[in-house]
Design a protein around this nucleic acid. Structure first.
Lengths: 229, 229
DNA sequence: AGTATCTAACTAACCGGTTAATTAGTAATG
DNA sequence: CATTACTAATTAACCGGTTAGTTAGATACT
């Protein structure tokens, strides 16, 4: 692999003189490390090593561990929110749109299984009294999503497609059903032996999630109008 | 500072010559500390201080931090499982029994809000490939509960009360709805301003959970037979 | 074109505070 | 006096963060 005269053969070739490559590598490594053990358990040494970068470089690009963590959260949530909002803004009846949302949310997580770990971990970590470094994230990402979903639920209730559920209760329940599987997957694996992340199992789960939500939300009278396959 | 020979009230009065008191104090303090930040973030100093005990005493009763953590998990789960199993073993139709279970599970968590933090934290922490120190817990506590619930679901399907859901999919969904609220509570608080743990809000949530499960599971034909109040 | 200057990108080595764990012992009890 | 319960003091490792540089390329000047 001749690489012009200025060949610097260390082993961490991947990232010399390439700021955004290095920065992205750090961020990706940080996502994985933070997903594993949260901010407390994450090791800056491990992040640096995984990114094939010297540890000091973390502090070149980010103020400190907390700042890096915030950057990770921002990346995770902005990406997620963008995809979900697009699905929510699509055409169709409230039934079709809520299922489109749920499917998109599920699909996104299925492709990025680290993300719910970070989210749930962070939720679990933030206490009610404490100063909330997570508050920024809530305002910027959760609130818009929540309100859009609540609005959609009210729409469906107006058309008579949805049961008279309280959005403030229904939205978290729905998200729970979508997300929880990926966190409990290791236990399912232990119990069933099967790999919960295989394409077949994911397809089964996806269908089950949509069925669960449909049954819990749609009026019995007007059944079978959503896309269930 | 005169200090008669048998005078040992230093400040850690609570626990001299009282092995089980000390041990229990350590365990309770450990539950709270582990719930906050997981095993990685928990500080043995903090546990000892909260238990009004010298740190070395932790190592008198427990081999190391990991061992203490396992003891905490055992206490949490055995307690939870016992209460839930009792509710599951009660009398009544499958409809009534599944709602009794869900209500009991909800109530238990409402009273011990630290527990789902530990559980979810632990789920999040265990990776698919890694050696599973959590496997013991799974076998001892999760599997029996899961199988009992699956059995109940099949019972209800036989009597025609329940829809033809796949227990392997439905059980995790149901647990998700019951549990998730307590983990997302801090965010809900930020968004709504209201305290998600106030008795009124808990009652509302409890009703919503039972309604959600009822709607998702019970056959539309045979509605309104469970206890919904 | 060549070279001097400048700077962004990056690293090796280290530092001091923290933390899990140990040790060596003291005090109570039967 | 032997065993159980418990602690002060200590240690070794770890870990977040810093520092003092080096390297590679861009720009300026000749």
């Amino acid at each position: 692999m001749p690489k012009s005269k200025t060949n610097h053969r260390k082993s961490h070739l991947g990232s010399r003189r390439q700021p955004e490559v290095s920065r992205a590598a750090i961020l990706q490594a940080a996502v994985e490390e933070f997903a594993r053990d949260g901010i407390a358990g994450a090791r800056t040494d491990a992040i640096a090593h995984a990114a094939h970068v010297n540890k000091a470089l973390l502090y070149y690009y980010f103020k400190d561990k907390e700042d890096l963590y915030q950057a990770v959260l921002d990346q995770v949530f902005s990406d997620l929110l963008e995809k979900i909002m697009r699905a929510l803004a699509g055409p169709g009846s409230p039934q079709q749109r809520i299922l489109a949302y749920a499917g998109a949310h599920f699909d996104y997580i299925a492709e990025n299984q680290l993300y719910p770990r970070i989210v749930l971990g962070e939720m679990t970590r933030m206490r009610l009294g404490k100063p909330h470094s997570f508050g920024r994230i809530t305002m910027r990402y959760f609130t818009p999503l929540f309100q859009k979903l609540a609005e959609l639920l009210r729409d469906g209730q107006k058309t008579g497609e949805f049961r008279a559920v309280d959005p403030e209760q229904f939205v978290p329940s729905m998200i729970a059903v979508i997300v929880f599987y990926f966190n409990s997957a290791p236990i399912m694996k232990l119990m069933s032996g099967k790999d919960p992340f295989s394409p077949e199992r994911l397809a089964v789960r996806r269908a089950a999630v949509l069925d669960f939500i449909s049954a819990a939300l749609f009026c019995p009278s007007a059944a079978g109008k959503g896309e269930l396959k």
